[in-house]
Computed example of a mutant assay.
Amino acid sequence: MRTSSSISGLLLVLLLSFSGRTFVSGGFDFPFEDVNQAWRGFLNLSGCHKGENVTGLDAVKKYFQQFGYLTNGDDSDEFDDDLEKALQIYQTNFDLNITGSLDNETLQQLVKPRCGVGDIINGTSSMKYGRRLAAVGHSVAHYSFFPGRPSWPRQASLTYAFSLSNQPFTAEQLRPIIVRSFARWEAATTLKFSEVSDYSSANLRIAFFRGDHGDGEPFDGPLGTLAHAFSPENGRLHFDAAENWVIDVAGLSAAGTVDLESVMVHEIGHLLGLGHSSVRESVMFPTLLTGTKKVDLHSDDVQGIQLLYGGNPRGNVSTPSQQSERSSDASSLFWSPLLSCFTIILSIIFLSFPL
């Protein structure tokens, strides 16, 4: 009996070990080391629901205040009606099960690195919740705009400049990333972009900062809010200098890395007037996992930007339904086999010695 149960137990361990999942903190498959320090406490709140009072809920409320889901300024640990409603709206925007509680699926989404631009701005949801979804062809559009739909003039020729302060790249390294990022939006619109040397006079200004940098949107360190940009015609695009930015696919093989071009393309969308999209494959989706490259415009991005500026009269832009490119998640490729072997060894030792 002991031998039979040991073999069965070992087979179960082997099955789980090679299933391709990474198990962290309460069954999460999101790498724990890729969670922002300030957000890690969220993972202890799994299952919290209305009516409870649990230490750490104040931080969740601050998160929802930051991204527009709560406006009451409450910082208590009480799971009240407002927090339940905020969760339901968030779950709608991200196409999650609408439970109104901190279930595992919602927590995994909450702790993913993301854009610092709010999902709800001035009380108006810029994503799926509370807005009428427009039918486009046989699909449903999920793109959105800033309140009032600000934009640059159609057929505008916009200038951009970038600062080399607070980041490790040279101008020669950054320039191709920036040129390609603007080219993707230019190919879809009537707009044209060109670089100028005078940073202060450029329409669009790109820079890297750490922490509180004077625009009312302080950064929070690695793997929290990655960057933010302001709506037209403000023109500012800021990256968090604390991130482990990479500029080539090979660099994405290291744990905790963030693809600069993917975030650049997303934030330029904000500079041009797009809000966040609920389409996960869209470049305007708010979150980006580490080790991920997603730079090609989804049809949802193209439909949204062309409503603002019209289509490109100089040619057609490719609009694949899915252009998300995932590098073979370096941390998974490296750590999963080691964790699997370690799990197997421990299981063999445990099962070999009867209690």
Rank of each mutant, 00 (worst) to 15 (best):
S299M: 06
L351M: 08
I344H: 03
F42Q: 00
Y63W: 12
A227V: 05
H213D: 05
V265D: 03
R2N: 12
A156D: 03
G304L: 07
F23H: 09
T55N: 13
P337E: 08
G123P: 06
D300V: 11
H266F: 06
G214W: 13
S25T: 14
D95Y: 10
F209E: 14
G20H: 04
G224R: 01
L110W: 04
N312G: 07
Y143C: 05
L164G: 10
G273H: 06
D29S: 15
Q155D: 14
Y69V: 08
G41M: 01
Q155L: 04
T189G: 02
F67Y: 15
S201M: 02
L70Q: 06
E84A: 11
Q155T: 08
T292I: 00
M1P: 06
M264D: 07
G311F: 00
H276Q: 02
T55V: 02
D34F: 09
Q66F: 12
S332I: 14
T55Y: 11
R180P: 04
L10H: 08
R40A: 06
K50W: 03
S328T: 05
P313Y: 01
I268Y: 02
C48D: 05
L223V: 01
N36D: 11
V111Q: 04
L102E: 05
D81V: 15
N312T: 09
V35N: 04
E217T: 10
N72I: 11
L57Q: 04
G216C: 04
L12V: 07
P218Y: 04
S163H: 05
F209Y: 14
A254G: 11
V246D: 00
S5Q: 14
L10E: 07
P153S: 06
E281R: 14
G20S: 01
I178Y: 07
N104L: 15
N93T: 01
G20I: 05
I268L: 00
D119Q: 12
I177P: 00
G256F: 05
I247D: 01
S25C: 04
P31F: 06
L96C: 10
N93D: 15
T189E: 06
F32R: 12
L226R: 00
L308E: 01
K293C: 10
L272H: 03
P150V: 02
D58N: 15
R131N: 10
D220R: 15
K294A: 14
L133R: 12
R314Y: 03
S4W: 13
G269L: 03
Y143A: 10
G315R: 04
A134L: 12
Y90P: 08
S332T: 09
S139A: 12
F28G: 06
S327H: 07
Q108M: 14
V179R: 10
Y143L: 01
L191P: 04
E84M: 08
T106R: 03
Q108H: 01
P337S: 02
D198K: 08
L45C: 02
K50V: 13
Q306V: 08
S200G: 12
G123Y: 07
L174D: 07
A86Y: 04
R314F: 11
R184N: 09
L102A: 09
G216H: 12
G27M: 05
D77N: 15
L87E: 06
N97R: 14
E186K: 13
K62C: 01
S6D: 13
V13W: 00
R236C: 00
F94S: 01
H49R: 14
L16E: 02
L297M: 08
R149Q: 12
P232Q: 05
V246P: 01
L174W: 03
F230W: 14
R205A: 06
G47Q: 02
F208H: 03
D29Q: 10
F79H: 07
